[in-house]
Design a protein around this nucleic acid. Sequence first.
RNA 1: GCCCCCGUAGCUCAGCAGGAUAGAGCGGCAGAUUCCUAAUCUGUAGGCCACGUGUUCGAAUCGCGUCGGGGGCGCCA
Length: 556
Amino acid sequence: MKQHVVKSLQTAFESLKEQWGIDSIPDIEVEIPRDEKMGDFATPAAMKLARILKKPPGEIADEIVVTLHEQSSDIFESIDIAGPGFINFRFNNNFFRNQLKALLEGEKSMLQSDTGKGRKIQVEFVSANPTGPLHIGHGRGAAVGNALCNILDAAGYEVEREFYINDAGLQIKLLGQSVYARYQQLFGNDIEFPEDGYRGDYIDSVAESVKEKYGDTYAHQTFDECGDPVTEFACNMMLENIKKDLKDFGVIFDSWQSEKELHEKGMVRHALDTLRDKGLLYEEEGAHWFRSTEFGDDKDRVIKKKDGAFTYFASDISYHKNKLDRGFDEIIDIWGADHHGYIQRIRSVLEAFDLPRDKFRVILIQMVSLLRHGEPVPMSKRAGAFITLREVIDEVGPDITKFIFLTRKADSHLDFDIDVAKEQSSENPVFYVQYAFARISSIFRLAEEKGMKGAENLNYHDVDFSALQEDEDMSLIKKLLQYPVVFEGAATACEPHRITYYLQELAGVFHAYYYKHRVLSDDGRLTLARLSLCRGIKIILEHGLKLLGVSAPESM
RNA sequence: GCCCCCGUAGCUCAGCAGGAUAGAGCGGCAGAUUCCUAAUCUGUAGGCCACGUGUUCGAAUCGCGUCGGGGGCGCCA
């Protein structure tokens, strides 16, 4: 739909270029005006050109509109100039009806975009340390990452969803030590609990499981003797829990990349060698450094410590090189907002490995403040006092939780009040959208009962769309045809919340429509046309909800 | 001290890489159901877009500064 406007403008500019005496036209911007009364699409092109042509915007707009009118086009109701020089386009109703018909006849094609053009893109998200259960912040990352992947996938990208497992390093060792200590306590051995150890209840269950599986095998061994198997056991158990939580949340990954494996396969060393060959590593004060300042970082970063151990950053270098080696054209990392300080150094790494700047993108997930009865719930992973994603899924449900996470921009703070999400269910926006879907489904059920076989899969070729005459008919059609525009915006900006907002708007227009007009009536011609319209809305609602990872119930 | 995010209606937040008279939900007030699901709809009140200053035809949006809230700044992960 937007393309029709853009094309008309392009053609007009082609013929005006000579007259204006310029070689190229700046990018054509076309937007949906905030107020429906202004038109269906608008362009501020004349105002942009004013500067280049050194003429008043109104005059330029005039020339453009005259040229547009000369191009015989039967899709516009009107093209006129408003405000400081906007050109407003209004399609005629027949065009809208035809577009609706096209959507119904070729569902898939209109809902598929080629923005991605088959490019390979990897999205890494959640990537929680397997040192404890997922908390609500991970849940937000999971919801956003999942929705984004769905969107990119529908936009024509070849998407891989990856979870990076930090199963090497100090934190994992601490996990092992914590479990070891609890395990010893099960046998009455009073072992000193590690100072920075993990104190959550889940550590006890892991220790119990170790005992169940291995009995007292390690009861008389020091951590040095049995640390490896205990740690590995604990890590695996944590990881299995994480996988299960994510699965129950409705988030599936294609790939799980282990940090430990990067070390074991020598990939860390290899990646560093590559950097060394490029002259980007140096030694100073007994440590090894990466020249990230070459790429705009504040300071160079240590990759190997004085004591000979690699830093976490070293694994990250290897990990991101590995991503490139796997042939991804674009890379998206979704991190907690507290990691924002890492963006520049990872960007430096990728540039060092020759990935163009604009092919790497970090999406930061802001913190979630969890509330109960309006009171903040304190969270501390080390102390083991926090609400897990599991608890929220069990208490609130995955659909509501995901939807709420997706009602905000990823990088703004989010208040998540469990009681509001759960108890005031009738005021929950997710139900508002789902209810629209259920209502439509109900209409189709009734139509079937009334003997209209295949009401939901009509032969649209035979439907007379010109029966749709009311203002509300048209508003609804227009709203639903905006979907591809919104969808494309969400994909290019990597902002799933735009879909969430749109779905609420579409549901709103439908609910108002439903209240005012009947779909099933004595007028057979009108009924068929409105059933078709309903089918269109149902398709869009279902498509949108699916992108968000939220179910679309046939009845509620 | 340096860096990042945020500051829009009573509350929670949108505002799409400057554009037209600033929006939604919730809450408030007043209404709507003989009719396809009232988890719905209609109307109404409510804003110096934190503050100041610059850039320009035009700023909630961009620059600089101030104030306020949150987070980050290790040879930790």
